[in-house]
Amino acid sequence: MSKKEKSTNAIGLDAGKTKELADKLNGLLANYQIFYQNARGFHWNIKGQKFFELHVKFEEIYTDSLLKIDEIAERVRTLGATPMHSFSDYVKNSSIKEIKDVSDGLLAVEEVLKGFKVLLEKERVILDLSADADDEGTNSLMSDYISQQEKLVWMYSAYLAK
Results as ranks from 00 to 15, higher is better:
G105K: 01
I126Y: 03
V125D: 09
V125E: 12
K114F: 01
E111S: 10
E136I: 08
E110F: 02
M142F: 02
V118C: 13
L113V: 06
V112N: 09
M142N: 08
D134S: 12
S130C: 12
A108V: 02
D128I: 09
E136P: 00
N139D: 01
D134M: 11
V125H: 06
E136Y: 14
Y145C: 15
E123F: 08
K122N: 10
D135T: 06
R124M: 04
S130Y: 06
I126C: 01
L127E: 00
V118Y: 09
L113K: 09
A131D: 13
V109H: 04
L120K: 01
S140E: 15
I146W: 01
A131G: 04
K122C: 01
E121W: 05
D134K: 14
K114W: 03
F116V: 07
S140L: 10
I146V: 15
L119V: 15
K114M: 06
V109A: 03
L120V: 15
A131C: 01
G137C: 00
V125Q: 08
K122H: 00
R124H: 14
A131R: 04
R124I: 00
D128N: 10
L119A: 13
L127W: 08
D132H: 11
D128F: 14
K114I: 03
E123Y: 09
F116E: 02
L141G: 11
G105F: 01
Y145R: 04
F116A: 10
D144W: 00
Y145V: 13
A133M: 05
R124N: 14
D132V: 05
G137H: 12
L127T: 12
I126W: 00
